[in-house]
Amino acid sequence: MRRAILIAVPYAWLLALFLIPFAVVFKISLSDIALAIPPYTPTAKDGIWNMLSQLDFENFVFLTEDDLYWKAYISSLQIALISTVLTLLVGYPMAYAMARAPEQWRPTLLMLVILPFWTSFLIRVYAWVGILSGEGFLNQFLLWIGIIDAPLTILNTNTAVYIGIVYTYLPFMILPIYAALDRLDGSLIEAAEDLGCSRIKAFWLVTIPLSRNGIIAGCFLVFIPALGEFVIPSLLGGSGTLMIGKVLFEEFFSNRDWPVASAVAVILLLILIIPIVLFQRNEQKQVEDGK
C-alpha cells in the first residue's frame, strides 16, 4: 500500500505536468488561429468526431512552405553540433588533466568546475556582451597587444553564439567525462604502454574507449539543450542567427501565433526524441552498471 503511494505521487505529478502538457501542445498545433484569447480555437469543443474531422495540418504545411522555419531547424542543428564538438575539445583535456591531478587537488578542481554552474546562467551569458562588443574588452586587449588594427565584429554573430554555448555548457561536458576517467584503472594504460603502445596510441586505444560513456553523456547534455537554446542566440547572436528556440519564443510572444508556435515545438520534439531516448538509455545503463 505504502509502495503504491510512493510510486503514484511522483508518477501522477510528472504525468500531469510533464506528459499531458505535450498532448496539449500537440492538440493546439492542429487547431486554427483565432483572434480570441486564448488565441486558438479549442479543437475538442464539439466532441471527438468533430475533432477528428476538424484536424488540420495547416500549421505544419505552413512550416514547410515558409523556409524561415527550415533554415532555423537546420541552422540550430548545425550550431548545436559545432558547439558540442568545440565543448568536447575544450572539456576533454580539462577533465583528463583533472583526473590525473594529485588526489588532494581534485576536490578543489572539481569545485572550481562546479562553481560557475551554480552561478546564474543569464549572468554568465551577459558577461560576454561586454567582452565581445566592438569596444569591448577583447577588442581593447587585441588592439593593445597589436594583433589587430581595427576592432573585430564578434558580438551578434554565430561565433559569439559558439563561445556562449561552450562557456555556459562546459561544466556539463567536464563532469561526466571526469567521472568516467576517474574510475578508469590506471594499470590498463600502463599495461598498454608495457606492451609497446606509445603514450598517444595508448590514449586512443585505451583511455578514449573506456571514457566513452562519459563522452556520450557529456555530448548529449550539451547538444540537446543547445538545440533549443533561447537566451544565448538572443543575447549574443545577431539578426542572422537563426535558432529554433528563438523563433518559437518570438512566434509566441511577438506574433502571438500559438498554433504555429506549438507546431514548431512539436517538430523540435520529434527531432529530439531520438537523442533523448539514447541519453536516457545511456544514463540508465550507468546507474545499473554502478550497482
Binding site: V25, I224, F230, A265
Partner: peptide
C-alpha cells in the same frame, strides 16, 4: 519522465 526534463529545451517545457 525523470530523465527527459533534464535535457528538454526550456522553450518546449515552458510553452507546454
Amino acid at each position: 519522465m525523470i530523465y527527459a526534463p533534464l535535457v528538454m529545451p526550456e522553450v518546449i517545457t515552458g510553452l507546454s
